[in-house]
């Protein structure tokens, strides 16, 4: 056991969540043993009952901003944190609540779920970086534990972490999987999706559905063209490409007849 004095010298970290599925939190929880010798966890409401709200060295935030109080909470976190790291697709891109739900009006959805008198206020879901400065973004659905630990290791040294945004295709090829896009004509989004999952779905013969969000500089127009040539309808393709929160700006180069939501 570490003594109180030692604890004080350890860097303080916090793990907070907004609107998300807590998948990231489970990954962190799974790897807590590795972290504990090197950090003091001052706040992790998902995992501990005593939480402080003082200044921290690193705050990891999961979930998207989907309610008015999320914004307040996020701003408070920002002002308390030396490093603010968005973890998981929700925090980085907004995930399904920003992507798949972007075609409906929030009011309509609230009404459908809660009836006339909704107990909650909802906003269109958006990523953290739309509201505050985010120091680094580690996408995932959920995040990759190795990447998370490596990012944490860099941050503990006060170094900017190295996070690649190469496409899933790279990981898939390195595992030497037969290409499901070519061989099975599945609507695989590997070419435009950020890697880190180890090409999990294609390795099991399924198409990547883009849950980690876009890779760096994704070629959305080319992806849509190729899927359409395989017989998929444009609206179907677009909806697939946007499900996990890929922002509209990435579709700016698409053909004019494309219905960009």
């Amino acid at each position: 056991m570490t003594t109180t004095t030692e604890q004080k010298t350890l860097p303080c970290i916090a793990v907070e969540s907004l609107t998300g599925c807590a998948g990231e939190l489970l990954v962190i929880l799974d790897n807590l043993e590795q972290l504990l010798p090197f950090v003091r966890i001052v706040s992790f409401p998902f995992a501990q009952s005593k939480n402080e709200c003082g200044p921290v060295d690193i705050t990891f935030v999961e979930g998207s901003v989907s309610q008015p109080h999320d914004i307040e909470k996020l701003k408070r976190i920002r002002s308390n944190s030396r490093w603010l790291i968005a973890i998981g697709n929700c925090a980085v891109w907004g995930c399904v609540q920003a992507g798949a739900c972007s075609r409906c009006h929030v009011e309509d959805m609230l009404h459908a779920v809660y009836g006339d008198e909704s107990p909650i206020k909802a906003l269109p879901a958006r990523p953290l970086s739309d509201f505050v400065h985010v120091d680094a973004m580690l996408s995932g659905c959920p995040i990759n534990a190795t990447q998370f630990l490596s990012v944490t290791a860099s941050l503990l040294k006060d170094h900017l972490p190295y996070i690649t945004h190469k496409p899933v295709c790279l990981e898939c090829k390195l595992r030497e999987n037969p290409c499901v896009l070519i061989e099975k004509n599945l609507p695989c989004l590997g070419p435009v999706t950020a890697a880190g999952c180890g090409a999990l779905c294609p390795s099991l013969g399924a198409a990547c559905y883009g849950c980690w969000g876009p890779c760096q500089s994704p070629q959305m127009a080319a992806m849509a063209t190729i899927l359409q040539e395989k017989g998929y309808q444009l609206d179907e393709v677009l909806s697939r490409l946007q499900t996990f929160g890929a922002p509209d700006t990435l579709f700016a180069r698409m053909k004019p007849d494309a219905e960009v939501a």
């Binding site: 090197f38 490596s150 290791a153 503990l156 295709c169 790279l170 500089s217 070629q219 080319a222 190729i226």
Partner: peptide, 30 residues
């Protein structure tokens, strides 16, 4: 290029593509 996905599939499969990246993996102990 209008069709190119920049997926990079053409390079790992090439018998002569040798390009690599060098990365550091730091441990938590600092």
């Amino acid at each position: 290029a209008d069709r190119c996905l920049s997926c990079g599939n053409c390079t790992p499969v090439c018998p002569t593509c040798y390009c690599f990246d060098l990365v550091d993996i730091a441990s938590l102990n600092g």
